[in-house]
Design a protein around this nucleic acid. Structure first.
Lengths: 126, 126
DNA sequence: CCATTAAGTCTCTAATTGAGACCTATAAAC
DNA sequence: GTTTATAGGTCTCAATTAGAGACTTAATGG
């Protein structure tokens, strides 16, 4: 009755290490997608604006992360017929719904940072 | 006043793509750590029990993920002097506090799975 | 004695990431 | 009128990371 989620999944014939939930979390909780979604949480951004906001990302990874998020319907890609053409990325409703959960995770990490840094120091000194 | 978190971090001289929060999330939201933490959410487990619960993980990655989580004080590693010695892993208080946030993320992914699968289908057919 | 179990380590290969050159078209700068 | 910049990418190659699986040590079961 209070089986772990992992056990429930297995009972349903799911491979927990390669299930739909995992695929979604992979696209949404990885390094660059997290930063992209946080930036888009503040409003639509164009490709090069994202590049400038995330100074360490390569164009390659930015393109790939945006494609994944777009395919999952988490962000929207719009091309405007300016010269040269510009492309705008924004959160969809699905993406908007994800942000609060992400913020909760970040707040947990911020709140526990002192404890974690202490844990690391104790661990490393031995 | 309602600057994005990214902008706040930058204003404080933080590199958002390599900050303490990111390091913590990396250890906690990656593929194997997520599955390990879910399994430990159900109670302490020994090394080989985790291996069996996560059939696709290699010993190498299990060891590495456990070491990272232990160093951050998210799980506890205890060695018992049996023959052969056995090692038990369990959640610390920090780890316990993380689980509800992780569950919220998983519930979001489960709840939005139909919409995401639809989005993918629409996207791919074009 | 041969096999198995525990909790790993080690090596080698495969997959993923990152750095950065290159592309196309237009328009402003010199 | 020729170089220079901008937009939004793609492409290639090198470096990093992950995965598969053989090997270890000591003890116990058959």
């Amino acid at each position: 009755m209070s089986d772990s989620r992992l056990e429930q999944w297995r009972a349903q014939g799911f491979d927990p290490s390669n299930c739909p939930v995992r695929q979604i979390l992979d696209h949404v909780s990885a390094k660059w997608p997290v930063l992209i979604l946080l930036e888009l949480g503040d409003g639509p951004r164009r490709f090069n604006a994202l590049l400038r906001a995330l100074p360490d990302i390569s164009k390659r990874m930015l393109t790939q992360s945006l494609r994944d998020l777009e395919r999952d319907g988490i962000i929207l890609r719009e091309v405007f017929d300016t010269k040269p053409p510009s492309v705008s990325y924004s959160l969809t409703d699905i993406g908007q719904g994800f942000l609060p959960r992400l913020q909760a995770l970040i707040e947990w990490a911020e709140g526990n940072m002192p404890a974690i840094i202490t844990a690391r120091a104790l661990h490393d000194q031995e």
